[in-house]
Amino acid sequence: MVEQDAIIKTLDLNCFYDELQVLRNINLEIYRNEILGIIGPANSGKTTFLRALNRLNSLNINYRQQGVIRFEGQDATQIPDSVLRRKIGIIFAMPQVLPITIYENVAYGPRVHGVKDGQRIDALVMESLQKAYLWDEVKDRLQTSATKLSGGQQQRLCIARTLAVEPDVILYDEPCSGLDPISTARVEDAMQQLSQQYTQILVTNNTKQAARVSHRTAFFLMGELVEVDNTQVLYTNPSDKRTDDYLTGKFG
């Protein structure tokens, strides 16, 4: 199922906001085409880790980072922001759509990457919406505003928008925290289908969601990576007591 070939690798990753250290010595490999779940209580550094991978953290002027992130074997600092972020897309916690049409939301990425051919964009939009399981619901109203969609539809639109720039990796930052169970199930279905083609990293507060979706799961606690293992193993037989405590609800 999972090829044991690391697409992303972090070596002693340390992240700081001003003097506050939010991640300590994270060494983690992410394998090609796996879904890696990252669980842990609030403020354990999960989101910071995710945003370190596509360098969105650097938008905060107080942010500093030490250590190495390798992407496809290459030191990620050697890759320009726009290339790296195209390869590593992200889905935010609350569905974030631009107040323009559904079509334009998806077409935005290809356009900024210089795709001018209208037919090619049409095709990309359709393909991306299909992959995100949204096509059937919106194909007749592509020119209406994206803000009119429901929360779950908006989140899948965000996935389609990310797919349209043809990334290798998709990051999910608690993608279902604002969604009802049915919408959540739709998003999870989409993720399952996408794992044939993409590497996905899912940060979630919901341990059950990670158990349902991810192949491997990592447990973060107070800025440290406590352990990472196959999901089944981690949930049934964790090697660290803190993991067990968290999963059985003793804290968090």
């Binding site: 897309g89 974030q96 935005y108 900024v112 990310t162």
Partner: peptide
């Protein structure tokens, strides 16, 4: 801004 940057826009 985050949406746009995360899609690789400059």
């Amino acid at each position: 801004r985050e949406i746009s940057l995360s899609l690789g826009a400059t």
